[in-house]
Amino acid sequence: MKTRYLISGLALLSIISCKTPLNIAKVQPEKNISISKDLPEDQIFKSIIEPYKMELEGKMNTKISHTSVDLTKQGDDSNLGNLLADYTFEGADDWAKKNGIPGGVDGAVINIGGIRTTIAAGDIMTRQIYEVMPFENEVMIMKMKGSDMQGLFDYYLKTLKNNPVSHIVIETDKDKIVNQLINGKPIDPAKTYYIATSDYLALGGDNMDYFKKGEMIATGIKLRDLFLEKFIANPEIKVPTDSRLNFKNKKNNKTDE
């Protein structure tokens, strides 16, 4: 038995000793060479996508409305901000009345940072709405207790930020709120309010934590789709002229978007 183990061990040792040692080749980093510029264009692929590309470009460059003034996002009451806040209100209000909220919505709040660019005076093309609102944000309706609505006004007093509103009035002077209205009336603590906004803000975006106290109602409406629909329905844009946000004696460290 011992002899058999000895023979097996010698055989294994012999096999191991006959193996060639593993040599690792020297590895050196080399400069990356791009070959994409030398690749020929795939004509078959190009011919397939070209009709779709032309169709898309045609839709993006289709005139949907017209504005006689620049639509900007500057100032407490920016005309573009107020316009889009009104469109948000109108879309949510219509949806609410058709879906079990007979009184509709009471107001709307959107964020100025979500409006990514402005619209110059002249014809308005489809692509400009995509540039203004490139995100896939959805319209939400927040069901709020009247006793929790003070948080909205306190937010504006603290930030003095020109986040657009609709059917809401907020006036401040230094460190005090001098006027706060929803649909033209003071807050009723016993009332239930329905405020239209985006899913981003509904979840507390832009530090709007007061919305977290409410109940979120999803509409399934994309903000950009709603804005497109509204611009198409209004071939000549009439900008809102009412005063909504008025921050008197605004501190220098408080700036607009």
Rank of each mutant, 00 (worst) to 15 (best):
T159S: 04
L226A: 06
N82R: 12
K185F: 11
P186E: 02
D242T: 07
K143R: 14
N99D: 03
L160G: 03
T88E: 02
A120V: 08
F247K: 07
V165Y: 05
I33A: 10
P51E: 07
K161R: 08
Y130T: 09
K63C: 02
M144R: 03
K26Q: 12
P164Y: 04
M125L: 15
N99P: 04
P134E: 05
N163D: 15
R4H: 01
Q150L: 01
L10S: 10
E55L: 15
Y52K: 05
N234W: 04
F247I: 12
F227S: 04
Y52G: 11
Q43N: 10
E257T: 02
I177Y: 12
I44Q: 13
Y200A: 00
N163E: 13
V165W: 09
L160Q: 14
Y5P: 01
A96N: 03
P29A: 13
E90N: 12
K53C: 02
Y200H: 02
T88A: 10
L83M: 11
E171L: 00
D188Y: 09
I237N: 01
P134W: 05
K73H: 06
K59A: 15
S68Y: 07
T126F: 09
V169W: 03
I187D: 03
S14Q: 09
P189N: 01
P164D: 05
P134T: 10
D86I: 10
S14F: 15
I195T: 00
L83C: 14
I187A: 06
K145P: 04
I141C: 05
K37S: 15
K185H: 09
M142V: 15
N111K: 03
V69N: 08
I170P: 00
L223Q: 08
N137D: 01
S198N: 14
L157E: 07
T197K: 03
N249R: 04
L160A: 08
F247W: 12
K250T: 08
N252G: 10
R244C: 07
Y210A: 01
A202H: 00
E90M: 09
A196S: 07
S243G: 05
D154P: 03
T241H: 04
D256L: 07
W95L: 02
P235G: 12
M125T: 07
L71G: 02
T117S: 14
D86C: 08
I232T: 14
G214W: 12
K250D: 04
K248H: 13
K238I: 15
D199Y: 10
L56M: 11
Q28L: 14
D93E: 06
I33R: 09
L223D: 03
T118L: 07
M208E: 03
I141G: 02
I33D: 06
I195A: 00
Y200F: 13
E236Q: 07
Q150N: 05
